[in-house]
Design a protein around this nucleic acid. Sequence first.
DNA 1: CGGAGTCTTGACGAGATTCAAGGCCAGTGG
DNA 2: CCACTGGCCTTGAATCTCGTCAAGACTCCG
Lengths: 294, 294
Amino acid sequence: MTTAALSSRPSSFSNQASKAILSANINEAGWRCHGNLWSNLREVCDLLHIAAPVSSVEEEVLFQHVRFKAGQRIHTIGQSFDTLYIVNSGFLKTVLIDEYGNEQVLSFPMKGDLLGIDGIHNQHHASEAVALSDCDIILLPYKIFTALGHTYAELEHAMFSVMSRELVREQLMIGMLSALSAEAKVARFLTNLGDRFSQLGYSGRSFNLRMTRHEIGSYLGLTLETVSRTLSAFNEMGLISVEQREICLLDPATLKTLRRLPPTKARNKVSEKVSTLVSKKLMPQWSADAAVAA
Amino acid sequence: MTTAALSSRPSSFSNQASKAILSANINEAGWRCHGNLWSNLREVCDLLHIAAPVSSVEEEVLFQHVRFKAGQRIHTIGQSFDTLYIVNSGFLKTVLIDEYGNEQVLSFPMKGDLLGIDGIHNQHHASEAVALSDCDIILLPYKIFTALGHTYAELEHAMFSVMSRELVREQLMIGMLSALSAEAKVARFLTNLGDRFSQLGYSGRSFNLRMTRHEIGSYLGLTLETVSRTLSAFNEMGLISVEQREICLLDPATLKTLRRLPPTKARNKVSEKVSTLVSKKLMPQWSADAAVAA
DNA sequence: CGGAGTCTTGACGAGATTCAAGGCCAGTGG
DNA sequence: CCACTGGCCTTGAATCTCGTCAAGACTCCG
């Protein structure tokens, strides 16, 4: 954050000199881009939304930034694991490759997300992370990070917590994949994306997609045609406005509660009449403030 | 394992007496069932397939066993979290409840599996674990376990590793849910189950299902009718023999490679002719030893 | 024996995929 | 500057898989 990083490179080193050497010669990439080459523990914790340990030593350890261009891979399947990654800026996808070479999109990480957890088990990555835009990534050497966890108990718990959060996210994903209709999947995908953008301080109503229809489809277990058709349908109904990758959510509330006609097959027989009458037009009936629609 | 546990309860206590007091009065359940009420760290590590720390202190800490009857809940959604669970024996399911009260099955844990990880994040369980048969569960108080992790670095890494493994498992689940046909899902479900049974020393070819068709369907994102029909189809084709919950895998190799006619939509156009000719009958074409079929 | 829960099987239809054709957009090279 | 190319997106029509609804059989238990 010290200005004038361009002309006087040493200045950014002045208060960090001795410790930086620890990992300085690992990778020479991204020398002085955007003036933020190293982050201390506090910055890392802020990024991950976890409470930082209140100690002075934290300033001593620095983590290196690396830049990736769109299309580049942060890690690949089978690659041996020794570091975790935090997204500092940019947009990516993580994918699985099945036995026939087809990509299966697992997530779309963005600022503040942790990558590479899948590599801890048996020391090799099970998935692949690809930059969808230019990215700034922070390297967290696993050994160093767990060592820090030993001295700061809060940090260790936070690490478990982040992994647990990731696990819960995937569980919800499984629930969504196996129980929702195509319309509901796309609707929730859009609102989730919007929510994540607003958490980052951007507009949650109006944004542009960084991924192709094909990638969205892979993520949601649909074909690209179905995704496209669904977006067009939402557009015509006035729920969103869409033009290529430019999206605007006009009625987020309705999108959030949009669902399959009978959700799986429902134990509550009460709703059946309403369901068949109203839900045909994709309108959720018992959203608290559905009166507006009429 | 000392015999005569019934009449002389004190005998099973003789060699553990002083240490057990540590946590003896936490919970009075399961007093002397099957003679194995407490496990030390080594036993726990063996169960989880992780290397146990080579120390003497480990004998000091004991973990309590609790028994659950079929239908009982180990933890419920929203319940506050403070302990992890290891399955020592028995069969369970973990489920999510969606906004309309429908169950979504997430996994079928059995011996050696770790439960409750989803609770670490924000201290409340996000899912629910239900015993499908009578179960013997080991309690791992989270605080105690992480404290042990502090003194034994291997243990901490092992904990991360187990969580990572769980994450990878869920990723594969996502891939399977969104890319495979109903037949392929059921086929892989059966072979996975078989593999898990054989890892535990049981027969991987012949076993009985502990869950209903409805639960299988929920797990795979299918209806119970589709599951039933698919099993019947496999039965007629001689791939399995099935009678109610009694399953025998007659051709595991074929089942493992069974897939959708076009897997997702395939980049490899080569296979299309073969595919349309052969795959209509659900036979995988390029399984190494497919020649047997003819 | 009767009843509840589970499983099987059939007929039908709706929703999603597949196949195909054409439009939009950006980058490239003449 | 413009035509050309390739990737991405849209839209339509035909197909098919899977879900829905319904009826009946099996099993376990009181």
